[in-house]
Amino acid sequence: MVEGDRMATAAAHRTAHADGAAQEDTSAFQAAFDAAVAAEERIEPRDWMPDAYRATLVRQIAQHAHSEIIGMQPEANWITRAPSLRRKAILMAKVQDEAGHGLYLYSAAETLGTGRDELLDKLHTGRQKYSSIFNYPTLTWADVGAIGWLVDGAAITNQVPLCRCSYGPYARAMVRICKEESFHQRQGYELLLSLSRGTAEQHAMAQDAVDRWWWPSLMMFGPPDDESAHSAQSMAWKIKRHSNDELRQRFVDICVPQAESLGLTLPDPALVWNEERGHHDFGPIDWTEFHDVLKGNGPCNDQRIARRRQAHDEGAWVREAAAAHAAKHGNAGTGATHA
């Protein structure tokens, strides 16, 4: 199947809506859409879909793409200081992957008729969000490990079910991303393990990083189920497969034994195995902090957006030059390629 010709599709549907039989057509389309979702079929770009489904997807995929791109910053902060050449190569490859994942996701969002420039503009002007976790600073080298282990770990817990998301291009992008990300979490864990088993200073550095990243990682799953604005509809549409609290619990249960093997402590005195539930109980999350960071008052909100805008603005002359060159030489979108 082909994902080209996106705008044309959106326009065609608007035309269909405008004609006299619109009402009747829509209900037939809606029925076909509902049946496809119920039958676990994938919705593809040129299929009819409810406007709200399209809007939800654009919002979610864009936020996801923005998170990858903004998420490059806290880690790129350490590329030039990586303490061994092996670690430096790993970190560069990881930050590069994040740019790549952002691109896969923007490309999935574009199948819904929204261009990347529009999405970036919304990011730059604060009209679309990215994951709040990236508004926390990377203060030491150990933070690179904590991001890999906890932040990527939480992200993977969230993302694996998205590989079965009802929207085809998003699901396909997630398959690719999850496959590539499997090294991200492992490198973070290995990095922390080296520190934990290293000198006393290195061990302390690792523990400090875990202390700072643990709670924000738990917040990555979003507000509790009873306060989550979009969850129910997204689950009905099979964009989302598990509730926030369910995924958060899964993540905690996975992390506890991993922390033990690391020789590091998770900073929650209330963390204890509950035999009856078959899960770990954990302490209350500070949702005030979550909402505060979300509103823009995190340690790095301004800095992250400013840097992103700087890259975009300072790159404008380069993008213009390439466009001008293509226009002059007549190969904008018509050049031959070779097999």
Binding site: M1, V2, E3, G100, L103, Y104, S107, E110, R116, R172, A173, R176, R319, A322, A323, H325, A326, H329, N331, A332, G333, T334, G335, A336, T337
Partner: peptide, 20 residues
């Protein structure tokens, strides 16, 4: 089909595709 990308012209599209 692997996905899509942006490029000013065919030559760079090919190279960006290779990298991505």
């Amino acid at each position: 089909h692997a996905g899509s990308l942006h490029a000013p012209d065919a030559e760079l599209a090919l190279r960006n595709a290779r990298d991505l």
